[in-house]
Design a protein around this nucleic acid. Structure first.
Lengths: 336, 336
DNA sequence: GCTGTCACTCGACAGGGGCGAGTGCTAATT
DNA sequence: AATTAGCACTCGCCCCTGTCGAGTGACAGC
């Protein structure tokens, strides 16, 4: 087979596929051969484009909503597009806004991440999500036991990076303030300076203290384990954009459900190192027109992820550059 | 004028108005004279009902979407309905679910309030909101200054009821760990045991310590003031219900905007003692089909509010009983 | 003051025709 | 063998129309 010719044909095929995807992203309408022709400027006729499109459809890159309509790209087409055809160009005015944002924003991590989702939404016009770093691996800086009821106390853990975790403890029996103070003291001695591991056993339940205090410490240790294992904080912003992004109520509802389910969100953003793009059926939600662009960030307190949730037909270039820019600046900002 | 006759007529008018409102709540459709007749069982003819309805329309309690349609109640009609016509009967199976929920749920306040919104949404099928108690009036139990960067530190304040507040401080100049420890010590001595007032001046900026430490303490005091003044935490749940509740995308968007604006939410739930019902134009959002039922709760750490946001045509009886039940149980639960 | 009746209004809905976009196929061309 | 021009065909969209029925307001009679 003639190599050069084959290459030519593949080039053209790619060009058509790119035009198909980009035009559909731009307009949201099914794309006709005429539009592809105008958009690519290829020196061929409409009939040839139609043949290409028919062939792309056979390979599962496009579908026709009905017989005499243009083509709509499939999830597979978007996947091919982001993998092979999308030059990752950086928007510089966008980068500027991101730097300005982080330069002017002085908040503690939780509120900063919340504000970050708002920034991402402003930049991309899509809902966005930020996942905070987990507590695992952090050094405990201080602990408190605060009495909140006759048989309840609140365990507060402050880590070296300023993260605060709270967990309610149900004491086995009522305790005096004195006893609780004693427990707090033992707890502090055992835990402060140590690393949070998620499975940590600090030997609190066998400490050399009066029985009631020891019993309480057992409960506290359980609470400590719970707190360590607990899922990282999740911040969602820009839900108000959803009505602009998806135009059917039922889709909006599906997405709202996803955004309320922290477990799903974690899976959707999660996992991969670096930037991850998941499109359509690559996501653990069936049947919805959804794509997620996310990337990790690293700060002193650990790592997390930020991402944007949108329809499959989103402007991947802009979104990728926004997400990566935000993640980078966020890392820089929290490293100072 | 014949008193008795007047009373009779007013009774009937009220009956018609109630049927109008309740039927519209039930079906969402414009209500015709025939429906009112069947629903009330009044011993009169359709024509009479029509006259009543026409009179109600003249007084601003109902509107016709078009000439030959039934009537739709106005905000004014709902107002009259909740003020005069809605017997506040308690759903007992509902009360049971609420008690069970609070008996089985053992979480610290923040997560408890978040879970409470989910409960309210389950009970009412509407989005719901909970506002946590503000920090004002609480006794400071512990403070920490955690270094998070060369020129930044995090102020952590733990109150006697277990509330934790964090605030970032931008130090005027880099500080050594020793200096920061010194600052932390002075801070603790000045603040622990005191009440948070919102405008509190603890004299930190004039403490008898080396100049750099004193400068830092000034910043910390500012941060402390910011933290005290900061708006209470707001938890929103049940946004996924919105698509079932409002059937137009633009309305859903408006409501999502409201739910993202904490300031608006505070005003909407806020203010009144006890249960407040605000309907339509009584709310600070123009033109939206919105009603809010909210009530206050009191716990050791202070007071807050819980509420439900829905369309004007919501089942006020059910919602009021749910909101009040939840608020009461929440108070009981946190008093133990 | 209530009722029965009746003409009238107006939205909802279904059917039908024309339009136009866009395709796939075929036969001709290079 | 690939490309092209041309053409018939499909099918959704839109507009128009007529019909139907729900519901009203008015009016005269009880």
């Amino acid at each position: 087979m003639d190599e050069r010719r084959t290459d030519d044909r593949d080039d053209r095929r790619d060009e058509v596929l790119r035009a198909l995807v980009e035009e559909h992203i731009r307009t949201g309408e099914p794309v006709s051969s005429k539009i592809v022709l105008e958009s690519t400027g290829l020196p061929v006729s409409g009939a040839t484009i139609r043949n290409e499109l028919a062939s792309l459809e056979r390979e599962g890159f496009a579908v026709q909503p009905h017989t005499s309509a243009g083509r709509v790209p499939t999830a597979r087409a978007y996947r091919y597009y982001v993998d092979h055809l999308s030059p990752a160009k950086l928007h510089s005015p966008q980068q500027r806004r991101i730097s300005d944002f982080f330069a002017s924003m002085h908040l503690e991590l939780g509120r900063l991440l919340k504000a970050t989702t708002e920034l991402l939404t402003d930049l991309t016009q899509y809902p966005s999500v930020a996942i905070g770093p987990g507590a695992t691996g952090e050094i405990v800086r201080a602990t408190h036991l605060v009495q909140t009821g006759a048989k309840t106390a609140l365990l507060v853990v402050v880590t070296a990076s300023g993260r605060v975790t709270q967990e309610l403890c149900r004491l086995p029996e009522p305790m005096t303030t004195k006893e609780l103070e004693r427990a707090e003291e033992v707890l502090a001695r055992a835990v402060v300076g140590k690393e949070i591991t998620g499975t940590g056993d600090f030997g609190l339940a066998t400490a050399d203290v009066p029985a009631p205090v020891r019993a309480a410490l057992g409960v506290v240790e359980d609470a400590l384990r719970d707190a360590s294992a607990r899922t990282a904080d999740i911040y969602v912003g820009g839900t108000r954009q959803m009505a602009n992004v998806w135009d059917s109520l039922s889709t909006v509802q599906r997405v709202l459900e996803v955004l309320e389910r922290e477990a799903t969100l974690l899976t959707m953003l999660g996992g991969a190192e670096g930037t991850s793009i998941r499109i359509g059926d690559e996501l653990p939600t069936d049947d919805v027109d959804l794509a997620v662009v996310s990337t990790g960030y690293e700060i002193a307190a650990g790592g997390g992820r930020v991402g944007v949730i949108g329809p499959m037909r989103m402007d991947y270039r802009k979104v990728i550059s926004a997400v990566e820019g935000v993640s980078r600046e966020l890392g820089d900002r929290m490293a100072d």
